[in-house]
Amino acid sequence: MTTAKGAATRTRIVDAAVDVLVRGGREAVNLDEILATTRTSKGQLFHYFPGGKQELIRVATEQQIQRLAIESTERLDTFEAWQRWIDEIIRLHRLQARDDACEVAALAGRILGPDPVERTLLGTNFAAWHARLASGLVAMKESALLREDADADAMAALFVTTLQGGAVVDKATGTLNYLEASLRATLDYLRGFARRDEVHRPGSSST
């Protein structure tokens, strides 16, 4: 049974690994540096992560994914909710980019990594994000906010691809323009499928 002190030690190790992954990728993960940063021993690290570096990277990746998921729990079933979600994504992207630590770009960069377990983990969670976005879009169709010809599955895929691609290009170019421009353009595309009565409804944000 893990004690409170042991749990705190494990959390420090994982948090340090997440920070390294976000800033430098899996190649930058160095166990000796993580031990020095967290002031833990090699025995402690291998006690919590018997598989060593590979297991630690997998656990850190899973925590990173969960952290990103928690940052946006609102159901995206109105145009206003989509606007708030995009504004929050852009805010976090700009905040993290100041420290060269964009979590979205870091995840996307590891999807083609050498570890099949990590790839499966990332792929599963990208699929879960896609399903969550599609669910909100289906709800918008059911509540007559979107036209019947709006393809919820395809639009959700577009948002996931835009989110990942924009973050990666920003990371590569050292700018903050691509993610914001592409997400806002994608939202405008979604608004193009608003039902006529939604477009002209007083106070609607889809105009």
Score class of each variant (00 low, 15 high):
residue 1 M to N: 11
residue 1 M to G: 14
residue 4 A to P: 13
residue 4 A to D: 12
residue 6 G to T: 09
residue 6 G to E: 08
residue 7 A to L: 00
residue 8 A to M: 05
residue 8 A to Q: 10
residue 12 R to A: 02
residue 12 R to L: 03
residue 12 R to P: 03
residue 17 A to M: 07
residue 19 D to A: 07
residue 26 R to Y: 05
residue 28 A to V: 08
residue 29 V to Q: 01
residue 30 N to D: 15
residue 34 I to Q: 01
residue 38 T to H: 08
residue 43 G to S: 10
residue 43 G to A: 12
residue 49 F to Y: 06
residue 51 G to W: 05
residue 52 G to W: 08
residue 59 V to M: 09
residue 61 T to L: 08
residue 64 Q to S: 12
residue 67 R to H: 15
residue 68 L to Q: 07
residue 71 E to P: 11
residue 73 T to Q: 08
residue 75 R to S: 08
residue 75 R to K: 10
residue 76 L to M: 03
residue 77 D to T: 06
residue 78 T to Q: 09
residue 79 F to E: 01
residue 81 A to N: 09
residue 83 Q to S: 14
residue 83 Q to E: 13
residue 86 I to N: 04
residue 87 D to A: 08
residue 98 R to P: 11
residue 98 R to E: 06
residue 101 A to V: 03
residue 101 A to L: 02
residue 101 A to I: 04
residue 103 E to V: 10
residue 104 V to R: 05
residue 106 A to L: 02
residue 107 L to D: 01
residue 107 L to F: 02
residue 113 G to A: 12
residue 118 E to S: 09
residue 118 E to L: 10
residue 123 G to Y: 01
residue 133 L to R: 06
residue 137 L to F: 05
residue 137 L to I: 03
residue 139 A to L: 14
residue 140 M to V: 10
residue 140 M to R: 14
residue 141 K to Y: 09
residue 142 E to I: 14
residue 145 L to Q: 09
residue 145 L to F: 06
residue 148 E to F: 13
residue 151 D to E: 10
residue 151 D to T: 12
residue 152 A to F: 00
residue 152 A to W: 01
residue 161 T to D: 06
residue 164 Q to N: 13
residue 165 G to I: 11
residue 166 G to Q: 02
residue 174 G to I: 01
residue 178 Y to R: 12
residue 179 L to W: 02
residue 181 A to L: 07
residue 184 R to N: 09
residue 184 R to A: 03
residue 185 A to H: 14
residue 189 Y to I: 04
residue 192 G to S: 03
residue 192 G to R: 01
residue 193 F to I: 07
residue 194 A to M: 05
residue 195 R to Q: 07
residue 198 E to H: 15
residue 198 E to I: 15
residue 200 H to S: 15
residue 202 P to T: 01
residue 205 S to Q: 13
residue 207 T to Q: 15
